[in-house]
Each structure stands twice: as C-alpha cells, then as structure tokens.
Amino acid sequence: MENFHLTHEHGKYKLKKEGAERSSKVFDTNKIDAIKSAKGFIESQSGGSLRIHKNSGEFQEERTYPRSIDPKKSKG
C-alpha cells in the first residue's frame, strides 16, 4: 500500500507520495476540499494511506482509501 502525505505550504495543500521529491498534486483550496480531492486521487491509484498534517506541519491523522484495504479494522 502506498503512503501519501497532505501538507500545507505557502497557502496551498500538497499531496506527496512518501519518498518522492515532487508533489503528486497541488490543491489551491481549503483543507476539507483538499482532503476530498486527495481521496479521489488515492482511490484512482488503487488505494493507499493518506497522512494528514496540521498547517504547522505536525501529524494530525491517517486515513486509508478505500476503507476496505485498511489493515486495522477499527471503527475510527
């Protein structure tokens, strides 16, 4: 499963595959819309993990798309 990070930089949200130098996508929207767009992109790539960071750069939460490939079967 691929891991992606969603970070905030210079007023934009950037989706970057773990280990990559360049962003896969750049979103010029609010955080909620950036997460929705990142979800669609990850699902189109056969799924993966989205690690969402706060605007300060700190880790916030992790989500797996689609949910059916989540290795943890928790409700959260």
Rank of each mutant, 00 (worst) to 15 (best):
D33T: 13
M1V: 07
H5K: 11
Q45A: 14
E21I: 15
R51L: 14
K54P: 00
G47E: 01
K17I: 04
F4E: 01
S46E: 14
R22C: 09
P71S: 13
M1H: 02
H8F: 14
T7M: 02
L6K: 00
K12V: 15
E2W: 01
I32G: 02
N55S: 11
S24N: 10
F41H: 13
S37G: 08
Y13T: 09
T29A: 11
G40V: 06
I42W: 03
I32T: 14
A34T: 03
A38M: 06
S24V: 09
G76R: 14
K72M: 09
G57C: 08
H8A: 09
I35P: 06
K25P: 03
K16D: 00
F59M: 05
K39A: 04
G76D: 14
E62R: 12
A34Y: 05
I42P: 02
I52M: 00
F4M: 03
G76W: 11
H53V: 09
Y13N: 07
Q60L: 13
H8E: 05
K72I: 06
H5C: 07
G47F: 01
H5D: 11
S23R: 09
K36C: 10
E62P: 01
L50G: 08
K72L: 12
K54E: 15
R67S: 12
S68L: 10
Y65A: 03
E9M: 08
A38Y: 03
F4L: 06
I42C: 03
Q60P: 01
R63W: 07
F4K: 01
H53D: 10
S44M: 06
F27P: 06
D33L: 14
S74M: 14
F59I: 00
I42L: 05
Y65Q: 05
K16C: 05
F4G: 00
K12G: 00
A20S: 15
K36E: 12
S74I: 15
M1Y: 07
I52F: 01
M1K: 02
A38I: 05
H53I: 07
R63A: 07
S56Y: 04
S37I: 01
A20I: 05
S44H: 06
I69S: 04
V26G: 10
K17C: 03
L6A: 04
E62N: 07
K25N: 10
H10I: 05
H10V: 03
K73F: 07
H8Y: 15
L6T: 00
K36L: 11
S49T: 15
E9W: 06
S37N: 10
E21N: 13
I35G: 07
S56Q: 08
H53P: 04
